[in-house]
Design a protein around this nucleic acid. Structure first.
Lengths: 277, 277
DNA sequence: AGACCTTACGGCCGGCGTAACAATA
DNA sequence: TATTGTTACGCCGGCCGTAAGGTCT
């Protein structure tokens, strides 16, 4: 029976041109390779080589065989990688979210429910989240709205409400409510990784400029040491506390308050129901 | 390293459901198969089976691996068959012809020139001959006209002229020449395997009915024992002789005389030039 | 002389089958 | 009790590397 190792030897010969070189690359003795190729030829039952006294070359049969060998070895590699990837995926819980705050809770929950699995997570816009859920990239995703598609199962999983955090010196500091339109044109501090939240201010406050901070630390420093307004939410305040010297003013726009939904494929619900808070 | 034999064992297990059955089918002991699958699993580095005390089953990894195995083994089979087919083709000279008479000479010549090769031949219409030549199905073909395409090399290789063979009692028996149109409506004996020749009478004599004989013997018998006209050619008369009690009358139509051309792919000419008469 | 392929020889390891054991239905 | 899968054990064959031989550049 032909074996993969022989095909690998044949490939090495095809690549390096001589048995000597190939044997060296394969870390085996050259006579061993000679015998192995003879055996391979015998298994095919047709000549694969032209033999001149001290020169071995593929004939047409051999060239064709080598092409097939390349393909078969490639497919074998695919098999190994594919199966290992599947195994890995089955030990990983992958969570996608539209925003960071609900994700934190979801990851905590997943880690508690499946302590022996790896939990990976990422923040994306809603469209790629839905696509990723369909393709199996995520086991569950967190959206800021109810999904319509009935291939999904979902459950409400909390709300988040946005506020302006203004310095006491701000003209609007005394207000009980502010609309985003009123704040349009005012420059603001903004944290980079806020998922779908990043769309809202840019849409409603097109004349404002947002000083986007990639580092949490940098943002906190600037909030503390500047009078630039920024956003907070009820959840960030619950976890990180209210910023010092800031007044928290509700936002009138209804979009400032969202309900999150944890979503999975209906067919996978039984496997992932423990992930639903 | 994973070996094909292991993939075959895996496939057998996938097909027969238990190691015992699979081992039996593979003509090996069952403990051997147990060990082999353990080793395979180790080589993947991930579990492929769920083990209950006396039940072995594929898990999801194993199912995926088995799919790949199927594919790889199939490709291996293709390799064997493909290479063997190529080898066989390289030992075979395949000749296609539009008509039987020039083919006889061509086959004789090929057998003489390449006594160690198998010569295979077939009669087809011109279109499939040209296609077959392009696709490598034939090394050379014989056409009744010069090919135009300049990827071909050709050489004139004889002519063939058709005649009517009439019984002495036939009204036209005294003529020195007859056109096919004059014979239209008269029923005739016709041999089946005459290649492109079979088109000509049907075209020029649409009102005649042709009593097609598949057997050479039957045709000869009928020619001898009936007064039905039939066709002969200069070549058939050269090899088989003139039919008894028949008058050979030339056909006026120019299509009754053709020149044959032996054709090969230009790029193959050096390999097959010995086949050109 | 150096590079290359093939054949000869002897050691050794890996895989095989038998046997024994454990669990299930 | 019959079937199935796993482990233990000892044997044997096949594969390997070394060595030697022959050919070509």
């Amino acid at each position: 029976m032909i074996e993969l190792f022989q095909l690998e030897q044949m490939r090495a010969f095809a690549r390096y041109g001589t048995l000597s070189k190939a044997a060296e690359e394969l870390h085996m003795s050259q006579p061993t390779l000679t015998r192995s190729m003879q055996k391979l030829e015998a298994e095919f039952g047709v000549p694969l080589f032209t033999r001149r006294k001290n020169k071995l070359e593929f004939n047409e049969n051999g060239k064709l065989a080598a092409e097939y060998a390349e393909k078969i070895l490639g497919e074998t590699q695919n098999m190994l990688e594919g199966v290992r990837a599947l195994d890995r995926a089955s030990h990983t819980i992958s969570i996608g979210s539209c925003a960071p705050m609900p994700l934190i809770k979801a990851v905590q929950n997943a880690t508690r429910m499946y302590p022996d699995r790896t939990v990976s997570s990422e923040i994306k816009d809603c469209a790629p989240l839905l696509e990723g859920l369909r393709s199996g990239l995520y086991q569950i995703i967190i959206l800021p709205y109810r999904p319509e598609d009935d291939t999904f199962t979902f459950r409400e999983s909390g709300t988040e409400t946005l506020f302006f955090a203004l310095p006491p010196s701000h003209p609007f500091a005394g207000r009980t409510e502010i609309s985003m339109k009123e704040m349009d044109g005012k420059n603001m501090l903004l944290y980079a990784d806020i998922g779908f939240w990043s769309h809202l201010p840019r849409e409603k406050m097109p004349h404002s400029r947002f000083l986007v901070q990639n580092e949490r630390f940098a943002l906190d420093e600037l909030v503390a040491s500047s009078v630039l307004p920024c956003f907070v939410s009820d959840i960030t305040m619950e976890t990180d506390g209210k910023p010092e010297n800031r007044l928290i003013i509700p936002i009138r726009d209804p979009e400032a308050s969202v309900t999150y939904y944890t979503v999975c494929l209906k067919k996978n619900f039984s496997q992932v129901k423990k992930l639903f808070l």
